[in-house]
Computed example of a mutant assay.
Amino acid sequence: MEITGIISAIVIGIVIGVLGRLVVPGRQRIGILLTIVVGIVAALIGAAIANAFDVADTKGVDWIEWLIQIGLAALGIAALDRSRVRH
């Protein structure tokens, strides 16, 4: 992977992670770096799912792919938040 691919994966991960975090109600007790990691993983898995269902390459904005990625990020953030021990 080239440096531009890595940078774009980080930027997309930030966007997907933040949007996923906005979807989850309440306050999440995970850091921004973990949010970015969840966003990157959700973006990669969401892109693979969108490719499998042949909805990734459409004309214009790939809304279905974005919704899949944001949904996966929200699930990941909620799961991590719930798994943290609260005092």
Rank of each mutant, 00 (worst) to 15 (best):
L67K: 05
I40F: 08
L34I: 03
V18P: 02
R86D: 10
H87C: 01
K59C: 00
L44P: 00
V37C: 03
K59Q: 12
D57Q: 11
G17E: 00
G39S: 08
A52E: 11
V41C: 05
Q69Y: 04
S83H: 07
D54L: 13
A47P: 01
G46P: 11
I16D: 02
G31F: 06
I70S: 04
I40V: 14
L80A: 04
I6E: 04
P25Q: 09
V23I: 11
G31N: 09
V38W: 01
I12Q: 11
R82N: 08
A43R: 01
G13A: 13
L80S: 02
W66L: 12
A9L: 14
V11Q: 06
G76C: 02
G20R: 00
I32V: 12
D81W: 05
I68R: 08
I40D: 01
V18K: 09
E65Y: 09
A74H: 01
D81I: 08
D81L: 06
M1Y: 11
L34P: 02
G26Q: 05
F53A: 14
I14H: 02
G13S: 11
V55W: 06
G5C: 03
A9F: 08
G26K: 08
D57E: 14
L67H: 07
I30A: 00
I7H: 03
V18R: 09
A78E: 06
A56E: 10
D62W: 10
R82F: 08
G20W: 00
A50S: 15
R29I: 06
T35A: 05
A47L: 12
I36C: 10
G31K: 08
I49H: 05
L33V: 14
W63A: 13
A9H: 11
S83Q: 10
A73S: 10
I16L: 06
R27W: 04
E2G: 15
I14S: 07
V41Q: 04
R86A: 09
R82M: 10
N51Y: 09
Q28N: 13
E2V: 07
G60M: 10
V11H: 01
N51K: 15
A73G: 01
I70L: 08
V18T: 09
R21P: 01
T58P: 01
I68S: 07
L22K: 13
G17R: 00
S83C: 05
D81P: 04
D81R: 05
D81S: 13
I77R: 01
V15A: 14
V24K: 01
I3L: 15
E2M: 09
V41L: 14
R86P: 03
L33K: 07
G60L: 11
G46Q: 06
A78I: 00
G26Y: 04
I70A: 07
I32S: 12
G17F: 02
I6L: 15
V85F: 04
G5P: 02
R82V: 08
A43L: 03
I45E: 02
A78G: 07
G46L: 07
M1G: 15
I40K: 02
V15C: 10
R84E: 12
Q28T: 13
E2C: 08
A50Y: 05
I64F: 11
R82G: 03
L75Y: 01
G71M: 06
I45T: 12
I45P: 04
I77M: 02
A9N: 13
I70D: 02
Q69N: 13
V41Y: 03
L72C: 06
R29F: 09
L33G: 14
F53I: 15
S83D: 05
I12C: 07
W63I: 14
V85R: 13
A43T: 06
